[in-house]
């Protein structure tokens, strides 16, 4: 993690993690991770099941708070501000660091209400027309507008799996977060829906910092600027995606990428 940690000198650090350890009860899931996440980059977390990549991802917007026995030590900062500081409001953090989940989980409400919920919650749109604008622009940016513009009042759960996942992405960007966390967003989708989401990620990169957990190494290679390889709760290697896949510095990374375990 030396020279390759930083993409280029101009890139600004968005989030930093220092010596992050996570415990589930007495069981330690993550053994001290240091990481910098740059602004407007796509960073992919790869590694075998149970390596702690999802756990670490969930530390970044404190979704782990909802698990009673989970305890996080170390420091994670967003724009230099400690996100585990007692004075920080977790609601505000989650508006800044949005999340897309493994299984598409639209609310059992209309497509419109799915998108409008976040902006309403945070008071981002006061008038109905403002809200309409937010809904339209979010759906457009998620590439879903053309498909659903005539049925905004129909339930979001009636869409196909890929459309549902794009709806969830649209719902997340409607709150205008700075960072979007994606926890295996394509694992429940077919290849066509997956490629649509991957194209979407490439576009969203211009406005958002994206952290994506994936089991699919080709996906990591396709969408990400940098790749982090996790193993048994440790960050083994972090570097420019191309380097990690073609010329890994660590033996374990190479073994995983070439399919020797995982």
């Amino acid at each position: 993690m030396s020279e390759s940690t930083v993409l280029n000198d101009a890139a600004k650090v968005k989030m930093t993690a220092r010596d992050v350890k996570v415990f589930y009860g007495t069981n330690q899931a993550i053994h001290g991770i240091d990481m910098d996440i740059m602004e407007n980059e796509v960073i992919a977390f790869i590694g075998p099941s149970g390596c702690g990549k999802s756990t670490f991802l969930r530390c970044l917007n404190r979704m782990n708070d909802t698990i009673d026995i989970c305890r996080v030590t170390g420091q994670i900062a967003l724009d230099g501000q400690d996100i585990y500081h007692p004075s920080l409001d977790v609601v505000q953090l989650r508006a800044q660091v949005g999340m897309v989940f493994q299984k598409p989980n639209p609310f059992p409400k209309s497509i419109y209400d799915n998108i409008a919920y976040g902006p309403k919650l945070h008071g981002l749109a006061s008038k109905k027309s403002d809200l309409d604008d937010v809904v339209e622009s979010s759906l457009r940016r998620a590439g879903l507008w053309e498909e659903v513009k005539d049925r905004l009042n129909q339930p979001g759960t009636g869409l196909s799996g890929g459309q549902q996942q794009r709806l969830c992405i649209a719902r997340t960007i409607a709150v205008s977060p700075e960072v979007i966390l994606m926890d295996e967003p394509c694992s429940a989708l077919d290849p066509i829906a997956t490629s649509i989401i991957e194209e979407l990620i490439a576009e969203l990169k211009q406005n958002f910092t994206i952290v994506i957990v994936t089991h699919n190494m080709q996906q990591a290679a396709r969408v990400s600027d940098r790749t982090a390889f996790f193993h048994l709760g440790n960050l083994i290697e972090l570097g420019v995606t191309n380097d990690v896949f073609t010329n890994p510095t660590q033996k374990r990374t190479e073994d995983y990428i070439t399919g020797r375990y995982g």
Partner: peptide, 23 residues
């Protein structure tokens, strides 16, 4: 009620009681 609904709401920045009462 599937936990995914709670997570979706929390992930959007709803507080715990908002997640419960809205969804």
């Amino acid at each position: 009620i599937p936990p995914s609904i709670r997570q979706a709401a929390l992930g959007l920045g709803a507080s715990k009681s908002q997640a419960v009462f809205h969804h």
